[in-house]
Design a protein around this nucleic acid. Structure first.
Lengths: 219, 219
DNA sequence: TCACCGCTGTCAGCTTGCTGTCAGGACGGC
DNA sequence: GCCGTCCTGACAGCAAGCTGACAGCGGTGA
């Protein structure tokens, strides 16, 4: 689960990164509007946390340009003063949710989770695909009802596949989402994780389409 | 137990947060009337502490609008001058209790507890999970019926875990809850607290899911 | 003012289990 | 059959988490 935090206040930015990381996100940060726009337009994020009060390009302008370019990732907007006007402006610009400062980190995390869930087209905390079910609250995994113990990394992989049921996810994309672009792992690391997961989950859960990527069996 | 504190004086707000947090509440703060109205109208709180002297939208107006929208959470009203008129106005606007400034924090906490109990938010003052039971009134802890002495910090940790029985709580979130966002402790401080608690409570009470966080064993 | 005491953060060393790497094999496409 | 992609078991490095010891701190009582 990959997130972009756009926030120029270093302390708040650090807090957001901490909270989201704790919630299982891999977080990148920028405090500059132009930079944020470029990242949001070229990279694939599962969530963007966007502060409106930015130097350079304004947060609302960034959001509008993303939407104009057809970028549809869920965006959670932060604003210094939670006035009604700002809220309306944000929603009109294409924000998915809105959080007035000051706020508690727990609330940020809760809303972030809700947004990602909503974006994945899943209403509740339970996501299912074929024999597999993910409880995004408990971070629990079950196959045909029987719970299976998975590690944090394995869980993040499953959650990502669950979000993209409509297509096979190429290894490059999975690698990028699980680790950073920066620290490169051997491609084999991913295969090892997949193998371990298959051993735990049994056959018929994680499928491979040669040349395209991995997917969750939905039948 | 989730509380909203509406108070524009930063120092008093900080005191209220401290007192309520110590009493096991998870507290959010705002100093703005519009913001308070929005939060109270969209979020679910077990308690609201409302200062009448607010910039922007007046406290009484906020309260009236909540009640008009059918929001029934218990509201404890604070006012600068404890005049007879204000008291009546507050009660008529739908306040559940009333506290004139200046007041002792202990009194605030006592009334807050009484309100929450009366509202039946959490049926009793007793919360249980597996072998563990918390008495939120007297801040007492017991394992399989036998009382155990825990410190204030330890109690807050247990209370927080008790509030989030449905999921493992990541260390980052616990750190943020126990200490402020501002003063950073070594991550190890938390582990020390956990270790001390485990020694007091015995095995099978606090569990760990490596990479996810801590939780109370419910089985 | 001083000694005492309980609470709590820091430190160092340790255990545990996660995870990347490697080597070799299986499989599918051409 | 050949080549590239993918799979898998073994293994070792490493980081998350655990624990006991210790010291600083604030509160309390003499």
């Amino acid at each position: 689960m990959r997130a972009l935090a756009v926030e120029d206040d270093t302390r708040i930015a650090a807090d957001i990164v901490g909270a989201l990381t704790g919630a299982g996100f891999r977080v990148e940060v920028t405090g500059d509007g132009e930079d944020a726009w470029f990242l949001g337009d070229t990279e694939d994020y599962d969530l963007v946390v966007l502060d409106l009060g930015l130097p350079g390009l304004d947060g609302l302008a960034v959001l509008k340009r993303w939407r104009a370019n057809g970028r549809a990732m869920p965006v959670l907007v932060l604003t210094a003063r939670g006035t009604w006007q700002e809220r309306v402006e944000g929603i009109e610009a294409g924000a998915d949710d809105y959080l007035p400062k000051p706020f508690r980190m727990e609330e940020l995390v809760a809303r972030a989770r809700a947004l990602v869930r909503r974006a994945g087209g899943h209403a509740g905390a339970l996501q299912e695909a074929g024999d597999l079910s993910l409880d995004t609250n408990r971070m629990g995994v079950a196959v045909r009802g029987t719970p299976v113990h998975v590690t944090a990394l394995e869980y993040r992989l499953l959650a990502y596949l669950m979000q993209h049921l409509d297509r096979p996810v190429p290894p490059s994309e999975l690698l990028e989402h699980l680790y950073g672009d920066d620290d490169a792992r051997e491609a084999n690391a991913l295969e090892a994780v997949i193998a371990r997961l298959r051993r735990k989950l049994g056959q018929g859960v994680i499928g491979t389409r040669r040349g395209f990527g991995y997917f969750l069996e939905t039948a």
